[in-house]
Write a protein that binds this DNA or RNA. Structure first.
Lengths: 191, 191, 191, 191
DNA sequence: AATGAATGAGTGTTCATTCAT
DNA sequence: CATGAATGAACACTCATTCAT
């Protein structure tokens, strides 16, 4: 009860829009500086909303981060539908998949967010479900084309590719990737 | 009766020991809470040294984190010499390598630190060298046994396995891993 | 399929009822956490009304608190009429009064609110009138039975009993209280 | 780990003095605005120390408040030794005690702090011990002179006097107080 | 008339870093 | 040398209050 303080001005009215804008901004901040350095202030500034709005819509920072990660998860779904289209019936899968992963890596931001989620999930069991679903989405796109077993192996390899590329800055080697993917597809135990 | 200062028990005189203790403590803290939440205080407490010692030996937090990551890198070298011994001349490599990666994952701490480094390197070019060297160490153990190309592919796959395991909490499937590793070895383009 | 707004159940139209509900809720919150920690939000939640209603009916938090304290004052009047009935013509006054104060202390909430008011009044002259009236109400019940002077002394003692009981958690000692009350009655200078 | 920030200047060196200054400042702030409105910032300003010093010496606000209350408790001990001296062997006790309580009330601050403690203790069991000890100190000064039973009654009455005086702003009536005190002394059941 | 949205000042607390001792 | 003290910026979060709807 700290008495009598005067706010000024009330702005736009678009709650759902603000929620979305905040989650999107949080997503960008996470990609930029990582979950551990994501702050209300950084998100508010990015979203160009007043600081108070962040906690109005997301009571805790954890909530805000969670919303951002869920958004990234949703974005991944969109991306993966594109993959599914592009992979078609599985013809030339290794080559096409190689092309897709290379494109994916062109925008570091999405991949960085993915690994932020993975690392956070490694420490916070609440995030495991989300991380697992992330992996599952990739598997589900591939499974119809190469079988569940190969799909799992491919998902693993693709994550490894992305991670090492981001971490080392080494350019990806499409030929090597394609060779490896092909080998993993052929090795499918068939389950 | 002025305030008598009890002559404190003679301080340890072992600067190098302290440096090591601090770096080791920092390593543990990083594994526990991540680079982003690593603080001087947490490290000092872990190492059981006074707060001032942290900045005395490592002028900035960045220096301290870097020392911890370098230590982890060194530890990896030790671990990998064990791998080299264990893999011998490459007989049964997929199976043996599967066993080694499973053991590696038994201690989450080392793997977590690895991915902290990777993610940090993805954002800080200064750390890229270290991250690249991390990857290289693995390749160098495998290259003599399977060739440089396959070694690269195996290193990628192993990182993917570790990451997905930590992130999702899913148990590893040794059979699947072994199958995939075998396929990658066989696919070696030979370069 | 635009977002359909479910026609909300017709709102209560009972402004006076809401005012009362808010003041009552505020009274409870004050008893629970003290004036200093009473917030619009806590009151709104307690009263199960929207946040906006608190400031709609009571422009400032101070107003809301004042309303709650006035309500407590009114409640005291009700309680004291019961006292008057119970004390009858003053026969056995010390014993009966002891019984009444012990009952009063059975519900901590009322007594806590009283002392919140007292302490607030000690700092805010606007509340002095209310606090004085609180004391007066007690005196007025007792004065016809024991005279104005003794009534004042009894009111003082009763407040002391309540305060020390609440603060220390010590159980009250009815015999001691009765003895003291009797002495104060007998000492009445008669004015 | 929010990197690289530059403090400036380090000041006096007198840890014990600072602790004391902070506790004393907190005591004043509590007397002024109450425990519920006591803030780190207000205390820091009062003590003329930087904000960081408050949490350096008292990790939480609760600790700071507790230190202030303990200080007040200690102060009371000093005050009460003065009372003991002044009351001597108990001759003229009612009159002398009346004088002392009137003096006590001349400085509202001490009494306000007392009641802040009482009210806080009513809600926080941890503070009960301190509140009980406060009451006990008064009893212990009086018990040798009038017996334990009367001492308890006197302590109750004195608290009532102080409370009503502060809350209502009514001037104290020394004659009435003296009469009441005398009656309570005479009523001593002798235990 | 009634309320959810909005805001920014203010809170408790943490912490990297500097410095006197 | 080594370290406890010191500091102030920053943080997550709360809240009284105003206002558009």
């Amino acid at each position: 009860m700290s008495t009598e303080r005067p706010p000024r001005t009330a702005r736009r009215r678009d709650p759902e829009g603000r929620r979305r804008a905040l989650a999107a901004a949080a997503q960008e901040v996470i990609a930029d500086v990582g979950i551990g350095r994501t702050t209300h202030r950084a998100v508010a500034e990015r979203a160009d909303v007043p600081l108070g709005a962040t906690t109005y819509y997301f009571p805790t920072l954890t909530d805000l981060v969670a919303a951002a990660l869920e958004r990234a998860h949703t974005d991944l779904g969109v991306e993966l539908r594109r993959w599914a289209d592009h992979l078609g019936d599985g013809t030339d899968l290794p080559a096409r998949l190689t092309g897709l992963i290379c494109e994916y890596l062109d925008d570091r931001s999405q991949a960085l967010t993915e690994f932020e989620l993975y690392l956070a999930a490694a420490r916070s069991p609440e995030l495991r479900v989300l991380a697992a679903s992330w992996v599952d989405q990739v598997r589900e796109v591939l499974a119809p084309l190469v079988g569940a077993g190969a799909a799992r192996a491919l998902a693993v390899f693709l994550d490894g590719v992305a991670l090492q590329h981001l971490a080392t800055g080494e350019p990806v080697d499409p030929t090597a990737i394609e060779t490896a993917l092909a080998a993993l597809v052929d090795a499918d135990p068939g389950n």
